[in-house]
């Protein structure tokens, strides 16, 4: 759906992005991961032409994005920022109505869509008449997401969307967003520097350094088939946790429940073990799980 080819961007004498290419398939979540200054945000901003590349092309559904007015292009692409970017002088209701108004929607249609999103995002309708400053950080980020989803754009760009939140809020919002049906269907490019976040949210991860792509692939690819030392080293610190999270139970124990990671299974086992009397007699134990995981890794 999105195809970037040989993007180059220089700021003065420093090269922010050095000839990178990638594809994002429809409905896929691509995570741009890397330390600050690696060029991930610049890459993201080139997709909705907030930054124009010095050379290279981006195709959206097969057409060059430069064939459209930047304003028209942007109205069709959702954009979520780290500091939510809500207008401080607009109420919540007015903030989320910005793009619909640019597209000249009927206000009844806007209202209906707002109600729908408020429900899905667990937002209290009472905050509609409040100003952003009166909301909590979590609420602000939800409103920011609601605003970007209002006109149901097929593509969503997210620039460190959870970066300004505290740890607990971040983890719970992340979980919520991951299962949100509005997001599941969308083609998303998300920028983050948080490895956990990348592995949790991404279908594929594009690990960048100094303006170049180090590796692009599924979380498993990066973990188990690192393209180079940089990739391996980058993940080393959190390797075990990432592995447990990215390997599915059915992969190591064929025939078990689907779509549960080893990590999730461990968590529930550990909780059950706190009350040994309740444990089902013949079920999986931590020990057997670890043995299976270790066998899977050595395979």
């Amino acid at each position: 759906m999105i195809k970037a080819a040989h993007l180059v961007k220089k700021f003065g004498s420093s090269t922010a992005v050095n000839s990178i290419s990638f594809d994002v398939k429809e409905g896929e979540n691509l995570i741009l991961l890397g330390t600050s200054g690696c060029g991930k945000t610049t890459t993201l901003r080139m997709v909705n032409r907030l930054t124009e590349p010095d050379s290279g092309t981006i195709f959206l559904n097969g057409t060059d994005i430069r064939s459209q007015q930047p304003e028209t292009l942007r109205r069709g692409i959702g954009y979520v920022l780290q500091n939510h970017g809500l207008f401080p002088h607009y109420t919540v209701a007015e903030n989320i109505a910005i793009v619909p108004r640019l597209l000249k929607w009927e206000s009844s249609k806007t209202g209906k869509r707002a109600d729908e999103l408020f429900e899905k995002l667990n937002l209290d309708p009472a905050i509609k008449d409040k100003y952003p400053a009166a909301l909590s950080g979590g609420q602000q980020q939800r409103v920011g997401l609601a605003r970007s989803l209002m006109v149901n754009p097929p593509v969503l760009l997210m620039d460190e969307p959870f970066g300004a939140l505290d740890n607990l809020t971040r983890i719970s919002i992340r979980k919520e967003f991951r299962v949100l049906d509005e997001l599941v269907k969308k083609t998303i490019i998300m920028v983050t520097h948080d490895v956990q976040e990348a592995f949790e949210m991404g279908d594929r991860i594009c690990l960048m350094d100094k303006g170049e792509i180090m590796q692009i692939g599924t979380p498993e690819d990066l973990l188990f088939r690192p393209a180079n030392n940089f990739v391996a080293n980058f993940l080393d610190e959190q390797r075990l946790q990432l592995e447990l999270k990215s390997v599915l139970l059915e992969e190591i124990l064929p025939g078990s429940a689907k779509n549960i990671s080893v990590w999730d299974q461990m968590e529930s086992l550990l909780q059950v073990n706190a009350y040994p009397d309740d444990a089902p007699g013949d079920a999986l134990t931590i020990e057997s799980l670890m043995a299976a995981f270790s066998k899977y890794k050595k395979r």
Partner: peptide, 27 residues
């Protein structure tokens, strides 16, 4: 004016004139 707000306005597809009259001047 907070640059993030201007950036958001741009990213949502507001024109320069709209950003000036609806975001920058009011703020």
């Amino acid at each position: 004016v907070n640059p993030a707000v201007v950036d958001a306005a741009k990213g949502m597809g507001m024109s320069k004139w709209q950003i000036l009259t609806k975001v920058e001047l009011p703020l």
